[in-house]
Design a protein around this nucleic acid. Structure first.
Length: 485
RNA sequence: GCUCCCGUAGUGUAGUCCGGUUAAUCAUUCCAGCCUUUCGAGCUGGAUACCCGGGUUCGAAUCCCGGCGGGAGCACCA
């Protein structure tokens, strides 16, 4: 291996995540996605951080589907999320689905009732909330256990309609933070669940099910966004009631991403309305869109490692991600000519012209593409490159030309004109193929490309002076997806 | 309104716990130059920051107080 490659490697590794606190041997961590659609860039942070730590310390990483709200599930998520994690290079040792575990939550809830740490409330939700906002107990909070159990059973036998009864977990009604006072543990919902149908109608809310599962999985560390800070405090009550050992909680800050739609519901809506072609539309910030564009998962990994796990809110930088990705793909991406908005130039007095264009400037061993100009000496160049009315141009790897009053004259093949400031532009032969590039703003750049581009199907290549793209279709026209400049 | 968290350059990050080789790290960005038959890569140089005000101290990004700013939560969503 070349020495400079080794240097680069260590440079990347210099940046590393801080150590976790309280690590004794292996770690057990989890990610807990809601199956409402495929993963996007924001999700990749949690997945990669978990993965990095599990790989550093050894241990296991769970994927736990949090599907306890039947109304907010897109069943495709059960398949797409593991695919996305796999693409990211995240190792999942075991997968759990909370909707397989309702009975477990019921059992724990019953124990909480028996311990006097929960109650079944039949207040109207607004009344209950109003009372707790004033640090007041609702009438059901301190009723005797037998009354509680009576109502508990009725929650399951169909006596109550949704919102007519819920299991509340006690915390501290006098807690100065209103967000921490008593919370709902289980509720009734008649919405059919995509996996369990109408078999269950009592559903746990996250603070109960998460606490129970985090305990049963014996997690050592829990990574979550700081929007869950108050949920952590609530869940700690459950741990304390049972004397369970709490995991180490780490909250990282909010991520704001510009220029991209991340809301799962809005993306789904856009897809339905035809605004986006699907979950992998290059306009979207989903992982499958990035994959389609030729963004390497390693670039995301490097990005999130550099960002770390601080509690400060951050602004995501596409430029930095692209820079990391360019680093990864530049060496392997072969070069091709793509001419957007082509204009035909007929070169007068030209000899028979053939270009020997290298596949990669840094890798002469990869050879060249032979680009043959036809007997009419005509080539295609981009309208943009003629916009400034240049008098002389260098057609890359082909020849120099002079332009005057719409006439194009052959001007030799002397490279020294470059010293005089003559610009180099790329071009395409007349027998080129039609090509288009799907851009991230939803537009399509149309043009022509050298025929050989079709051979790069599936690869990430550089269209010289245009952008890096991934070639995703070869016929009938070549279709590429914009990666980045 | 109440509760909690956070505040180093455009962006992200190191340093903050245990105050003194840092008139502040690294990456990315931007600018200039070099190099190159790409506007890619590479090289060189430059630019931009410790939120503000007090206090403690010989000395504070680092400790204390106050202010300001940003964020999160106060849901029968996760």
């Amino acid at each position: 291996m070349a020495p400079e490659l080794l240097v680069k490697e260590t440079k990347v590794r210099e940046v590393s995540l801080p150590d976790l606190r309280n690590v004794a041997g292996e770690v057990r961590m989890r990610m807990a996605p809601n199956p409402s659609g495929p993963l996007h860039v924001g999700h990749s942070r949690m997945a990669i951080l978990n993965d990095e730590y599990v790989k550093r310390y050894g241990g296991i990483c769970y994927n736990r589907f949090e599907d306890t709200d039947p109304a907010r599930i897109d069943p495709t998520g059960y398949d797409t999320i593991p695919e996305d994690l796999d693409w990211l290079g995240v190792t999942i040792h075991k997968t759990l689905i909370q909707s397989d575990r309702f009975q477990i939550y019921y059992d724990v809830a019953k124990q909480l009732l028996e311990k006097g740490k929960a109650y079944v409330c039949t207040c109207k939700p607004e009344d209950w909330r109003e009372l707790k906002n004033h640090k007041k107990a609702c009438p059901h909070r301190e009723q005797p256990l037998n009354e509680q159990m009576l109502r508990w059973d009725k929650m399951f036998d169909g006596s109550y309609k949704p919102e007519e009864a819920s299991l509340m977990v006690k915390t501290d009604l006098a807690h100065p933070n209103p967000a921490i006072r008593d919370f709902v543990g289980l509720r009734i919902d008649d919405t059919p669940h995509p996996r369990t149908g109408t078999k269950f109608r009592v559903y746990p809310l996250m603070n109960l099910s998460v606490a129970v599962d985090d305990h049963l999985l014996d997690l050592t560390h829990v990574l979550r966004g700081k929007d869950h800070l108050n949920n952590t405090y609530r869940q700690e009550y459950v741990f304390d009631y049972f004397g369970w050992k709490k995991p180490e909680y780490i909250h990282y800050g909010r991520i704001s991403l510009e220029d991209v739609q991340l809301s799962t519901s809005k993306m789904a809506k856009g897809i339905r309305e035809g605004l986006y072609s699907g979950w992998d539309d290059p306009q979207l910030g989903t992982l499958r869109a990035l994959r389609r564009r030729g963004i390497m998962p390693e670039s995301l990994r490097r990005y999130w490692i550099e960002v770390g796990i601080k509690e400060v809110d951050i602004e995501f930088s596409w430029k930095t991600l692209y820079s990391f990705n360019r680093d990864l793909i530049d060496d392997s991406a072969n070069r091709y000519f793509f001419v957007a908005d082509p204009v035909k130039l007929t070169i007068e007095d030209a000899p028979k012209l053939v270009a020997k264009a290298p596949f990669h400037p840094d890798h002469p061993e990869r050879g060249v593409r032979d680009l043959h100009v036809g007997d009419d000496s005509a080539v295609l160049v981009s309208k943009d490159d003629l916009a400034s009315n240049p008098s002389r141009l260098r057609l890359k790897d082909l020849c120099n030309i002079e332009l005057r009053d719409g006439a194009v004259q052959y001007a030799g093949n002397d490279l020294s004109v470059l010293k005089e400031g003559v610009r180099i532009v790329h071009w395409a032969p007349m027998d080129s193929v039609q090509a288009e590039v799907l851009m991230t703003d939803g537009s399509v750049r149309k043009g022509v490309a050298e025929r050989g581009l079709a051979d790069a199907l599936g690869q990430v290549v550089q269209l010289e002076r245009f952008a890096f793209v991934r070639v995703e279709r070869a016929t009938p026209t070549v279709r590429c997806v914009f990666t980045h400049k």
